[in-house]
Each structure stands twice: as C-alpha cells, then as structure tokens.
Design a protein around this nucleic acid. Structure first.
Lengths: 229, 229
DNA sequence: ATATAAACCAAAACTCAATTGGTATCCAAC
DNA sequence: GTTGGATACCAATTGAGTTTTGGTTTATAT
C-alpha cells in the first residue's frame, strides 16, 4: 500500500486533526463537545468536512450525536426510562398488545414448568371469580389478577417485574376505546374458555399448550380490540 | 343521635352539591375537573368550603389531587416506575438469563418482520466491530449494541423499553464470576457465528429462524455461564 | 368562633425563543 | 461534471420565563 500524499484523503487528515483536538481539550463531565458550527470554526474547516470526520468517529462508536442535544464522547447512554409514564406516552394500545403477545405466552410456558399447587389454586379462584363478576370492572380486576398469578408462577422475580412494568404501561396508556358491551360479561365470553384451557395446560405441565393457549387468547383479545377500532 | 338541623353540617351540603355537579358535567378523558378557584365560583361557595368538600371526596378515594396538576376523578395512577436497583437486588444471573431467553427470541421474531435496511446495516456494523474488538470490554459494548439494535428494529417502543429495563437489571446484577478468559475474544468465539445467523435470518425475513437463532445463542451463553459456575 | 377573601408558596404546566444535529439548495472552483 | 463551501431551513431539544394549580397563611368581617 502506498503512502498517500498529504491531501489525497483530506477527510483522513481532518479525522486526525479532530482526534488530536479532542485529545487536547478537557471535556465536561457529560463528555459533550462544542457544537459543530463552533468546532468547525476552531478547527478551520467547513462544517461539511467536519461532519464527515464526525461521521467516521461515530461509526467507530467513539461518540454519539443527537439533534438538539449535541455531540458526546463515549457510547450512547441507554434510555433507562423505566419510567412508566414516559413509556405510556410514547406507546399506544397496539404496541401494548404486541408486547403482551411477545411476553405472556413465554411467561406461561415458564409457568407451566414451575407452577405450584398453590399457584394453580389461585388461578382457579380467579377463573371462578371472573365468571361471577357483576360488572366489567370486576371482571377486569380478576382477569388482571389471573394473568399476574401466571407470571408469579414462573418463579422468576425479574420476569414478574417486567410483567408488572408492562401492566402498568397498559393501565397508563390511553385506550380511547369505549365499553359498548353489555353491562356485564356474558357467560359465553371468549376469555372464559381460553383462560381455562391455559390453566389446564399449566396444571398438566403441558408447556407447549400453555404458550399456545396464551398466544391464542391474546390474539383474540387483540382482534376484538381492533374490530371496534 | 339527633337529627341535625339543615345547616348544622354545611360541609355535608356542599359535598352533596359537589357530588351532584360532578355527576352532571362530563369530564375530559383524564378525569380532570376544573381548578378550585373556578369550581368555587361556579358552585357559589368559598374556596375554603369547597376544599373541605374535596377533602371528603379525596378521603373516600373518589378523586386525587396534585399541586400544579389539578384535581382528578378516580384513583391516583400509581407511578410504579420500575425500580432497577430493587429488581437487581432480588434477582440473580440465572433469572436474568432465563428472562433474556424468554424475551429476546420473541423480540428477534418481531424484528424480522419490521427491520429496515438501516437497522440491518447497523447490525452488520456491530458484527464487524465485535470481531475487531481488542478487549472483552469492547466486545461486550458491541454485543450489547447489537442486541439493542435488534430490539430497536422491532419498531415497538414498549418492547424496547422492557428490553432496556432487562438490560439495566443485567448490568446491575452481581455476577460474581470474573473473566478468566483470554484477554480478547478469540476468532472462533461461538457468538460470532451465532450473531451472524441471527442477523441473516432477520435480513431474509425468516422469522422462525430469527427466533430460533436467538434462543440457541442465549442458551449457549447460559451454558457457558453455568459451566464456569 | 367561623367563614371569607386575599396573598403567598412551591410544584407543575405552559410558552416561546435559542440551540443543535441533520438535510437540501445554490454557487463557485477546478 | 464533480467537489466542496456557504447558506438556509427543519425538527428535536433545551432553557428561561410566565402562568396555572393545589396547599397554606394571614387579616378581616360577621
């Protein structure tokens, strides 16, 4: 490989120049470096060329940029927004359903491995109570508790925590949907049979059926949701 | 107990009046009712007396208030922002791996549906960079970024948020084990091929292979982890 | 005594201009 | 014709300043 002339790869030169400059100056704690317009003036290069150099360093993972914030050395901090409200604001009912369909069948699968008789008993109670519900509000309370009991039965505190987070977002998200349904759940409501088959599968340690049952159940819920738009 | 005269408990009257008013008007979606100053004018009572009535309803749990926000019907939305530290304290590496095996294959499956060419390109870059890594630290940075890029590609901000939460717990959990491995990842490190097959599957929209590949990968990671205890 | 009105406080929301990375356009240089 | 530079514009973000709101205190009147 030949040694290139000084200006054969001018962007290379600017990258080098930029590296040197970044090595000299001491950055603030957050690693933020001067805005592009300022930096281009200091280095005596056009903003276009400076950005090319920054592109290189960004591709190398040495810095990250964001409109309105600035350019920062180091790796982009993960959005550790376990903040339910923020999540709910950015999300929507469709995303919530898709996330449920991703998570809950696998949680049910895990629960089919590890559920204790006490877990099963609580699930059975939730089933019975939900059938007796006099209002949709009551029904939803027992439905929620059933799903959470399944998550508990996975014996995995982390999975349970993630499930609770998802659930909190679900409650916080603006559904916009109206209850045009009858005042109370009808005896042939699809969820009753679906819930029971899920609990049956868990009780019989049929992990595949538990996952499949939960997936089918949530897909029905999703369909009903989208039907009434 | 004596029957009190009509005005012996004036606050009782105001509570009733307030209940009636709240029953009439239709509240906005968030259940927010007019500010106290406005409400007191409408009801023709002093703000002091109105506040006493609101105190009653708040004690009954029928509404909740917050300075700067307002007064809202219903129960206060619990701001259960997932506490990463608490989760990490109760959890452990085994749970983290099981949670990853539950979530990430399904996230990869979703990503195979929705990944854009830009997503694929970033995944490829992560693959290349991880191969070039000179230290385990660098390798892990690119590995983490690859997995997060896949989660981003699912186009679901909620799933991404849950993934980030899981990741934050993963970092916070005490792993105990140290890297007794060679100083840098060897070229035949199992993850390289596994990562590539996952990205290939996503690129070819092979959703089953994406999920299976991710599951196999994480199970390998789990096995390696448990091997060295 | 009790209720009222007013003033004040701090938290939150809101408004609006300035900043910043990203992008398109036009123009000069070669 | 291509390249690079200057300029303008865009959308996201920030930050300062103002307004709104529930909570509290104080003075006044009945």
């Amino acid at each position: 490989m030949l040694t290139p002339p000084a200006d054969a790869h001018p962007e290379k030169t600017i990258v080098t120049q930029l590296r040197g400059y970044l090595g000299q100056i001491d950055l603030p704690d957050d690693g933020r470096l001067p805005p592009e317009r300022e930096l281009s003036a200091v280095l005596g290069v056009s903003r276009t060329e400076l950005r090319k150099a920054l592109d290189v360093l960004e591709a190398e993972g040495q810095l990250w940029r964001h409109v309105g914030k600035g350019t920062f050395m180091g790796s982009r901090p993960l959005d550790t927004f376990a903040d339910i409200a923020a999540l709910a604001r950015r999300s929507n009912p469709a995303e919530v359903m898709r996330a449920r369909i991703v998570m809950e069948p696998e949680i049910a699968r895990a629960a089919a491995f590890t559920a204790t008789p006490a877990d099963i008993a609580e699930m059975r109670m939730c089933l019975a109570r939900s059938r007796q519900a006099e209002t949709w509000r009551q029904y939803e309370a027992w439905d929620t508790r059933l799903h959470r009991t399944i998550a508990e039965a996975s014996q995995n505190t982390l999975l349970l925590g993630l499930f609770d987070t998802l659930n909190a977002v679900r409650r916080a998200v603006t559904w916009g949907r109206l209850r045009t349904e009858p005042v109370k759940p009808l005896p042939d409501h699809h969820s009753f049979a679906e819930h029971e088959s899920i609990v049956d599968a868990i009780e019989h340690r049929d992990i595949a059926a538990a996952a499949a049952g939960m997936r089918a159940h949530l897909q029905t819920v999703e369909r009903k949701l989208l039907d009434r738009q």
